[in-house]
């Protein structure tokens, strides 16, 4: 009793697997913390959503579908928060992004890594007694 929708859900699982493998390839291949964060925080989250929802709809119990939808909604809500926190810590610690990965094609003397440091972000917090 294979339904037509089951083929659609199998395809959804393959779709999610493609996104996961692509994100892992980006994590392996990119050369910067910010680009690696970009690859994993979007690709793995979307692939996880597609794969787990496909499994839940294939197995078919209503409570299981509810649990899977809850897990996916929670992950979609919290993955941007986690990525934002990691990027904020990286920026405050002064990690430099790679500006031009292949160098300047017109000027062969340019360094691969951009020589100037990024501007440090200073955030003033006001305390209770007014001292910074």
């Amino acid at each position: 009793m294979t339904n037509v929708l089951d083929y659609f859900f199998i395809g959804m699982m393959f779709f999610g697997l493609f996104f996961i493998v692509t994100a892992a390839l980006g994590l392996y291949r990119f050369q910067d913390l910010y680009t690696r964060l970009h690859a994993t925080s979007k690709g793995i989250t979307f692939g996880f959503g597609a794969l787990v929802l496909g499994v839940a709809f294939l197995l078919g119990g209503q409570g299981d579908i509810a649990k899977a939808v809850l897990a996916v909604i929670f992950q979609f809500l919290t993955a941007p928060v986690a990525a934002h926190m990691i990027a904020r810590v990286a920026l405050r610690k002064g990690i430099r992004p790679v500006r031009n990965p292949q160098g300047d094609l017109l000027d062969p003397d340019t360094d691969i890594i951009s020589p100037e440091p990024i501007r440090r972000v200073t955030i003033r917090r006001s305390t209770a007694d007014g001292t910074p």
Partner: peptide, 19 residues
């Protein structure tokens, strides 16, 4: 090269284990 790379990997490994 940095600790934050490992933090990214912890997040990603948890999702891979779930999958």
């Amino acid at each position: 090269p940095h600790v934050l790379d490992r933090v990214i990997c912890i997040d990603a490994i948890a999702l891979i284990v779930i999958c």
